[in-house]
Structure formats: C-alpha cells, structure tokens
Simulated assay, not measured.
Amino acid sequence: MQLNDARMTRVNLSGVEIRGAALYGTRLVGVELSDVVIEGDLGNVVVNGVDIGPLVDAELTRRDPLYGELNPPDAEGFRRAWAQIEQRWADLTERARALPEETLHANVDGEWSFIQTLRHLGFATAAWLQRTVQGDPNPYRPLDLPWDEAPDWPAEWNMPGDRTARPTLEEALAGRAARQDAMREHLATLTDDDLTGSVTREEPGWPAYPDVPVHLALQTILVEEYQHHRFATRDLETLTAGEKED
C-alpha cells in the first residue's frame, strides 16, 4: 500500500498495527498517543520539540553496553562485538535444544518462531556479507528466510522465501553455523582500511545497490543478530512461562 504524501485529518487509528513501514518526513500534529509501542530505527524523531533518538540510544546502552557497540569505529570493534553476539546466541541455542520441537516452531503475536529466526539470520548474512561485501551473486540456501514484506522478486533470481517450511532445529543450525563461520572468518582479516571502502553489486538478485559502504553492510549484520536475539529471547520467555510456574 502506498500512502506517500497522504494527508489525514480527524482519523481514528486506535488499535492499528503497522509493520514494515517507511515513515520519512512524516508529521503527526495534534495527536494523542497512549499505549503506543514502536520497534524500529529512529533518526531525527522529534517529540514535542525533543529529538528522542539519542535519548533512547543512551537508555538502551545503559541497559546493555553491547547495544552501544553495534556501530564499531574500527575492525577490532567489529570483532569484539561479533564475539559477544556469537556467545549470546550459543547460550540461547543451548537453551533451545532442551525445548520441544513444537515450541521452536511456535509463533508469538505473529512474530517469527525460533527456527524461522535462525533462517532469517542466514539470509541476512548471505545478503550483506556474502553477496554485498564478498561478491557471491547468489549465496542463498533454500531454507533462508527474507523479511516478511520482501518484494516479489523475479522467479529467475531463485530467491528463497518459504515461511511455511518446518526444518528441524539441527537442519536450521547447519545453515546458521556456516554463515556464522563465514562472518567470523571475514572479520578475522578485516582491516580499518577495508571499512572505508564501498561496493556496488549489479548482478541480478538482491541486494543490488550502488556504493554500499562496507562498514554499513557489516554493521547491518551486527544489528540484525543483536535485535533478533532480543526478540527470540523475549518470545522463548513467553512460550516457557507456564513451565517456570509449574
């Protein structure tokens, strides 16, 4: 749905859920916001004259210092952040291994299941590391899962996207481990000079953007890994809450 440059007055948006939306240059004037939840990237978001983005970043960093390391200034910072992210995922995966397979396929409030999350992270690493940075024109595997609002890519691109697939945890982890290895190996030899470069991918497929900064491509993976670990942890807590009470 395209609502670019729409003008809405005297509208009631109570109970509305908006996903995968682009809100650039948007103005909300004379609104009443209560019980509103926003999950996304904030940049120059001004509420009653206050840019809340830096305030939110400061609070999230206070709660978890790793959040403040997701935009590393140098190659060593990338290696340090990735090592912490990998350890967190290793701990969460061990917890997942002890849960019934059905729990790992369960969705909470329409979000991805644990196994779907692993599949999506494989897609993210394939897209931003293996294709964008390393130049593999088609690094995807059949179980990789793009974001839900991904476009209908041409069939000849052979892009993955079966949300209904139900691989076992071990099947999902096999692809996941290969992508984690690829990221770790790439960061092992990453230099500060590498981070100042940019790449353009014109081969059929996605992503295919001009002049993508290497730093941005690799940072995208850090953010994806961090945020989806947060979401997966939250949802497993919800799914196992009854077990703790027992």
Rank of each mutant, 00 (worst) to 15 (best):
G135W: 08
S198L: 07
P160N: 11
A124F: 06
G20F: 13
V29M: 01
L121T: 03
R119Q: 10
P167R: 00
V199K: 13
D148V: 14
D148A: 13
V133T: 06
L239C: 07
V214Y: 04
R27K: 15
E149S: 15
I85G: 00
M183E: 04
A217D: 13
A21M: 11
I52V: 12
L70N: 01
N107G: 02
T220I: 06
L216A: 15
G49S: 10
P142I: 06
Y226P: 01
D51I: 07
R80N: 11
L99I: 10
V37Q: 08
P139E: 02
T132Y: 09
V29F: 03
L143H: 05
D51Y: 02
G25V: 10
A96K: 03
R184I: 06
N12S: 03
V108W: 01
H105C: 03
D235M: 03
P65T: 03
G20S: 15
V133K: 03
R19C: 09
V223D: 10
P65M: 04
R184P: 00
H186D: 00
A174S: 06
E245M: 14
T220S: 08
L239T: 12
G53A: 15
L129A: 04
G175C: 04
E59V: 00
L104N: 11
E102H: 06
A126C: 05
A124S: 12
G161V: 04
D91T: 11
R176N: 03
T200F: 07
T189Q: 05
P139L: 07
L66R: 08
R19E: 11
L23A: 10
L187M: 03
V223H: 02
L173T: 05
R88S: 03
G15M: 06
S14M: 06
D64G: 14
D35K: 12
V16Y: 14
A83D: 12
H186A: 00
Y209Q: 10
P154G: 00
L143C: 09
V223N: 02
T238P: 01
V16A: 15
